[in-house]
Simulated scan of single mutants.
Amino acid sequence: MRNSNLKSVLAVLFLFLFATCQDKTILSEKESELYTIKKFGIDDFQNEKTLSGKKLNIPQLLYPDLVLALEDYLVISETEDDTLFHIINKSNYKHIRKTGKSGIAPNELKSASSLFKTVRKNQFWGYSLSGKTLAKYNAIDTFANSIEVIKPKNDEMYLASTLVPSAKNSFLSTRNNGDEKFVEFRFDGQILNIFGNWQDMLNMKDVPSNVISSLLQGKLVVNDAKTHFAFACLDADIIEILDKTTGKTISVRGPVHHVPKFTVDYGAGYAMCALDFDDVIYKYIDATIFNNKIYAGFSGHSFETIDINKEDKFVEQIFIFDLDGNPLIRYNLNYSIKHFTVDEDRIYAITYDENPGLVVFDL
């Protein structure tokens, strides 16, 4: 019995040491004048609060996915409909209209993978990752099509992956290929700025840059002033905070300090990142910046729990950081969610359950 217990303890100790060594081996800890690393644990948050949300009954929401708070409205995207967006009145949560025809015509968007506010009141951008297309909409307009569309102008723009507006006529993106981590484009295709590179992220040789960017894929968000950007990684618990005015990046790492095992697979004829799904733990599912605070939805659930066992668990915690990467508040939620947006005194989220809908958390 003692030998059995000792073996169990040693096995757990070995796995812990292996994971620790693996993380130190995989992630580079190289710092520079433009790149700083900050590590944190779950106990480093200054405050912890429990939020009890209220789930709303809005019958028009069949397959809600993304949610964005505008000045007077909420925009909620659909995943399986010929119209992309629902417009909800923020004051009474009444459904106003549907807008944004789904399609491939010049003023249409096939699907929406991200939503962003514009500089004008009650207008928003929808971004289609598959179509590499930005389309602008007016929440108060009964016209179903977009009022402006931005498509890639050259090969460089086709390499853009996740993106956010960075000024009136430009956007910042991560790259599908190439070593540049963040690239700022004008809408006409001209490159304005390049920040960081993927090769500096790993302490490993001969790993192609596109494999590293795939390993560290995530959600890119921006503050209203378009000065600070946060890139929250899905499979590694890393948030990269870029100050565009100085070119400096703070890499916030934690709280579990885990990067999944992976191999470089050439089976398709080119290098691809092949994750060991037995070792995948989802980290930052969604993020936003509001009032110069970074809100990051942390999962901590495994690929097996979510994708294989189909349990109703995804994000039950939202972490708050300042723009210097310091942990401030940890919110514990009574609903599991998948996407969220933040307003002055509320968090609006889409639930992750058998009947997904809109839930409102008062702050």
Score class of each variant (00 low, 15 high):
residue 256 V to W: 02
residue 227 T to D: 12
residue 301 H to K: 14
residue 47 N to A: 07
residue 161 S to G: 13
residue 92 N to A: 07
residue 328 L to W: 00
residue 306 I to Y: 05
residue 224 D to I: 07
residue 172 L to W: 03
residue 245 T to I: 01
residue 61 L to W: 12
residue 176 N to V: 00
residue 1 M to F: 05
residue 187 F to Q: 08
residue 306 I to G: 05
residue 147 I to R: 04
residue 286 D to G: 07
residue 244 K to W: 07
residue 248 K to P: 06
residue 190 Q to N: 10
residue 228 H to L: 04
residue 1 M to S: 12
residue 155 D to Y: 03
residue 58 I to D: 03
residue 213 S to L: 00
residue 283 K to C: 15
residue 354 E to Q: 12
residue 4 S to F: 09
residue 242 L to W: 06
residue 273 C to H: 05
residue 82 D to Y: 12
residue 203 N to I: 00
residue 18 F to G: 03
residue 311 E to F: 13
residue 174 T to S: 11
residue 89 N to D: 13
residue 220 L to P: 10
residue 286 D to E: 07
residue 297 G to N: 10
residue 308 I to D: 11
residue 177 N to G: 01
residue 127 Y to D: 03
residue 339 H to F: 07
residue 17 L to T: 14
residue 82 D to P: 00
residue 117 K to G: 03
residue 136 K to D: 01
residue 354 E to R: 10
residue 273 C to V: 06
residue 200 D to S: 14
residue 46 Q to T: 08
residue 20 T to M: 01
residue 304 E to A: 15
residue 145 N to Y: 14
residue 54 K to D: 08
residue 315 V to I: 13
residue 69 A to C: 07
residue 190 Q to W: 03
residue 44 D to N: 13
residue 156 E to V: 06
residue 236 A to M: 06
residue 139 A to C: 01
residue 86 H to C: 03
residue 337 I to V: 14
residue 65 D to H: 11
residue 91 S to M: 04
residue 88 I to F: 11
residue 224 D to C: 05
residue 343 D to N: 12
residue 358 L to H: 11
residue 337 I to M: 08
residue 316 E to L: 00
residue 121 K to W: 13
residue 321 F to L: 04
residue 173 S to M: 04
residue 137 Y to P: 04
residue 266 Y to L: 12
residue 325 G to F: 10
residue 197 N to P: 02
residue 339 H to N: 15
residue 361 F to M: 08
residue 327 P to N: 07
residue 109 L to A: 09
residue 298 F to P: 04
residue 256 V to T: 10
residue 242 L to A: 09
residue 153 K to Y: 00
residue 158 Y to G: 02
residue 45 F to N: 04
residue 186 R to W: 00
residue 170 S to C: 02
residue 194 I to L: 08
residue 273 C to R: 08
residue 267 G to F: 00
residue 232 A to C: 15
residue 340 F to V: 00
residue 43 D to L: 13
residue 64 P to V: 01
residue 279 D to Q: 09
residue 152 P to F: 05
residue 198 W to I: 00
residue 133 T to A: 10
residue 340 F to Y: 15
residue 338 K to N: 13
residue 12 V to N: 03
residue 94 K to E: 13
residue 93 Y to T: 05
residue 295 Y to S: 08
residue 83 T to H: 14
residue 216 L to A: 12
residue 253 R to T: 11
residue 359 V to I: 09
residue 46 Q to H: 03
residue 42 I to D: 02
